[in-house]
Design a binder for these strands. Structure first.
Lengths: 214, 214, 214, 214
DNA sequence: GATGAATGAGTGTTCATTCAT
DNA sequence: TATGAATGAACACTCATTCAT
């Protein structure tokens, strides 16, 4: 445009690719973005570097994403969903509530260690970006909901303190596990992962007044 | 940039000011930096804005600090020292154990909300800076130590589960409180502060198997 | 900044330079901006080229101007004021109203030809930029006001049709002259400048019912 | 870019469509281009948005047009031709001369407001494109010619000042009306359309020394 | 010591145009 | 002929740091 002033109101929002080729390119960009975020942190996460890592030209980035933040949100959602799915407790522990708690905590810690340098980075951004903050709250809600449901079932089975509010309890105990992951993997407090899992689980069980199955 | 630590020392490192005036200027810069970090977070923490808030000219910033990170480390050190100092007079002495837990949790949450937004920011944002990471671990250690000692006394008095490792327990339950502060104040999950304090305390007490005083 | 998201609310607005050196630099940027606009039009008017033409580095541009538009507005104001000053009718025609009209029209046409490729360019931008549009209206108002006052004096002296609304008349006849400048210099309709001046003046005089001085 | 005319002809210039379908597509693009120019001005006039508005895919644009400028020229030519066509049936024939002037001015102002925002945009914005400049001069000539003929008839009938050069007068008074349209519709000077029509007509009549019909 | 001007590499984004299918 | 993905130079702007006075 010859004239620099005046913004167009109608910036065409990138839509989902319709051809297989487009899908491949978009996937490559998402993968490259995630990879860079995990290996190089914020400094590596620029549209230019992402495009280059995906093997496409700079402009192509904006064929699929409205902005850098758009890609970030996409990556975060993907990582969060993966993590949530991974941390689902294997059904073979169905009978033993304590074993389930241990498995859940171990699973969470491992999922965090493996997949979520992304989430750690993002927590920082959330301080100044509202969309990101809400996205993190959404992700948290998944865990909170699952934890609350688990507790409710235990209460109904007479295996846990019926006086505890399920949601609040899930939030607080979830926070415990989340921060431990942060302490171990980000701050690198020198602790044995398995020892932490056991201890957390013991405290968790005691906190909810878990009784051995009748 | 925080990641760019460990430069080769080719430029004159600013030395401590020798005149009273110099000291005042430096103090003003540190205070302004802390203030900005607490009130505006990372986006407000630029040399230019710090200098302006301190009422000195832009260039003066570099008379006293090698870099932006240099000031950041200085501010963090100051906040950490303050927390050390405060912790010495902790009213940890006597009375009803449960009430003490409630008071400690309430106090911790409030300290976190007010004075140490700085630490929260740094904890989530400075993951590549080793100096800061270690400083954070030191501050944590302070609280862990105090928590562990408290638990040990309870155990010795026969008021808490003697099977728990005091240090590990303090770490895990401390993490719970710390993360709840993050959830409430940074992510702004809509929760009543006092309700959280009560719930956390109840879970904490149950977790350590707290018994009412004989 | 490591984090890309979140805009700072406090962008320091560039203030007027306080030292002589600063004033020189700022003046050089304004001059270069005007020069480029006049010689190369919009395509040459980029912060980078302006800075280069002024012999300073890129970043310096933003030491003195909030944005490209900021400089543009500055240049427009300057050109407009210059033009308005230039087109003031020499006082030696005080006695003869018709001679004054001729002089004013000739002056306007010349001022436009010399100084205001800038204004022509800007008229285009005004279509999509509100600030610019208002700036142009302000400039117009200067001329309109002067024209209206002139007519009022003639009416009071009984030398012009007293039934004409001075302001509206000034607007309409001013539009006539302005567009003729555009037609001659921008569209390059092949017309003799002096012939146009004479004809415009004759029509202008007839339109306001100018009577020879008693 | 408009300034980039006269490329070396190394790529296949799009030829006129041969199938009916091709013609429909091309027409849709032209119509969409015109529509966007009229409703959104320059910012809306991008190949992408034009294609989208025409309901065809992006790439198709370049099946029919060599460039964005190619479409612009096509649209301008179309608008110009329309104006030529309309001018042929101008109701210029008889009646009260003053009423005719009023009607002509009102009509011109309205035409300008509606159909030829395109021309207004181009007149102020396309100063480096020779093709367009000449096209604009041609359109102007049409109106000038008509105006001059009208004046000549009035002079022959003894109803207007016989000392005026018809062509020059038509140019100057035409400029007056044209610029008023610009002032009202582009710069949005707050004036009543009908009041402007009346005033312009009064000044016009006085300027040519119009005498009431014998 | 203090000032404020100067620096310039880096960032996110746009968009007219080309290309493979 | 039609599609939509791909291209990349260009642009406006930021900001930690350095420098001349």
């Amino acid at each position: 445009m010859m004239v620099a002033m005046g913004r167009s109101r109608t910036k065409p929002a990138p839509s989902a690719p319709v051809t297989a080729r487009g899908r491949r390119t978009r996937d490559a960009l998402v993968a490259a973005g995630r990879e860079l975020l995990e290996t190089r942190g914020w400094p590596g996460f620029t549209p230019e570097q992402v495009a280059q890592a995906a093997g496409v030209s700079y402009g192509t980035f904006y064929t699929y994403f409205e902005s850098k933040d758009d890609l970030l949100r996409t990556v975060v959602r993907m990582v969060a969903e993966e993590m949530f799915a991974e941390s689902r407790v294997a059904p073979d522990t169905a009978g033993d509530p304590y074993a389930r708690i241990v498995a859940a905590n171990r699973g969470y810690l491992r999922a965090w260690r493996n997949a979520s340098r992304v989430l750690r980075l993002v927590e920082r951004g959330a301080d100044s970006d509202d969309t990101l903050r809400r996205l993190l709250l959404e992700v948290r809600e998944l865990y909170v909901h699952r934890g609350a449901e688990g507790l409710r079932r235990l209460q109904e089975a007479g295996l846990a303190d019926p006086g505890l509010d399920p949601r609040m309890t899930a939030i607080v105990l979830g926070a415990m596990v989340e921060q431990m992951a942060h302490v171990i993997y980000a701050l690198r407090e020198p602790l044995e992962e398995e020892a932490v899992v056991e201890h957390m689980s013991k405290l968790w069980a005691a906190a909810i007044g878990l009784r051995a199955q009748a």
